[in-house]
């Protein structure tokens, strides 16, 4: 029966169970309410149908009853609110240890990049049981990355980064949809997410890997090619601030504001360097607007992110072996 009349998508992520739980609760609440209203109105319509010589009994109302049917729904609503908010809080808070992948959307295609440098189009391979965070942006209009089997969705905007995370719990292939209407081929901006056993995923990552550069490595290469490194030196203070260790910190700006160094700030500083000048520096950096693609930006962001201050373990080191080739 369910084969022909499916009611549920697969449950393939850490969120699926909790979202379905709330859904079932709400379905039950709705059925109860609907039956209550339906039964009451049908009963009243039959029992109190108009009969010759019988007048309606005038009733003004009842404050107590009205209070009851305002307060009880309100309490139920607050339970639903709290329940929904808890799940949402989870959905919007990626764990710190999540593997960071990047997505760039465009009309009408999804481009993904793994930290190891593996790129995919309209397909994303992920290991089961690992926290995966996808950092996303769009080259043109608003899109939305949606995995029904994971019960997760996030709009993808031009000009900024949004993120989505999940932990896949079931091996298999699942739908990947664009959920925000984006023009002609919106319904064709689809693909699949392939969840693999971690060991198989490692094999898949290494398969066909003839000298692929990691994402951070690509970023580092660009960092040199574009001349960033002439001012942003890695050890001594150049004309621009040292970038090592700044990611995730609060940065004091020239105008006295504090800004958190996140993906959006790094992106903005590359494309519109004059927007937020770090305290103590001159606004001399040229814009790279139009010179770097969203994909290159993503790798630059990943590289800046990987730069750790002296004494901190650096991700760059891990990226080096591939980089050397």
């Amino acid at each position: 029966m369910l084969k022909y009349f499916p009611l549920w998508p697969d449950q393939a992520s850490n969120f699926a169970g909790s979202v379905d739980g709330l859904y079932i609760f709400l379905v039950l609440v709705s059925i109860a309410m609907f039956v209550l209203i339906g039964a009451a109105s049908i009963t009243f319509a039959v029992v109190y149908r108009r009969r010759e010589g019988v007048e309606a009994t005038p009733i003004e109302g009842s404050t107590i009853l009205e209070l009851i049917w305002s307060v009880i729904p309100f309490i139920v609503f607050m339970i639903i609110f709290g329940w929904g908010a808890t799940i949402y809080f989870d959905e919007r808070t990626p764990p710190r240890d999540a593997v960071e992948m990047y997505a760039v959307a465009k009309q009408w295609m999804w481009k993904f990049e793994h930290p190891e440098g593996q790129r995919e189009i309209n397909e994303l391979h992920v290991p089961m049981g690992r926290n995966i965070k996808i950092i996303m942006t769009s080259q043109d209009v608003i899109h939305s990355l949606y995995f029904p089997a994971f019960r997760i969705k996030q709009d993808v905007l031009p000009g900024r980064y949004t993120t989505l995370w999940f932990n896949a719990t079931q091996v298999g292939e699942f739908h990947l949809f664009c959920a925000e209407y984006c023009g002609t081929q919106h319904s064709n901006m689809i693909g699949k997410i392939v969840v693999m056993q971690p060991a198989e995923y490692e094999l898949w990552l290494n398969g066909g890997n003839n000298g692929r550069t990691s994402l951070v490595g690509t970023g580092q290469k660009l960092f040199t090619e574009l001349g960033c490194s002439t001012c942003h030196k890695s050890d001594v203070q150049g004309r621009g601030p040292v970038l090592a260790g700044v990611f995730g910190k609060q940065q004091l700006l020239q105008d006295g504001r504090l800004v958190k160094v996140d993906e959006d700030y790094v992106r903005e500083s590359i494309l519109n360097p004059q927007a937020k000048i770090v305290s103590g520096f001159q606004p001399i950096m040229p814009t790279f607007q139009g010179q770097v693609s969203e994909e290159q930006l993503v790798s630059l962001v990943a590289y800046v992110k990987s730069l750790k201050a002296e004494g901190q373990p650096s991700n760059v080191a891990q990226a080096q072996p591939q980089q050397v080739k």
Partner: peptide, 23 residues
Amino acid sequence: FTIGGLTGLFLAALGLDVHVTDT
């Protein structure tokens, strides 16, 4: 209206809306 209103409760529930919005 009762069905419409009740399903509004689903959509206002944040964690559930993430799945069903835009569907």
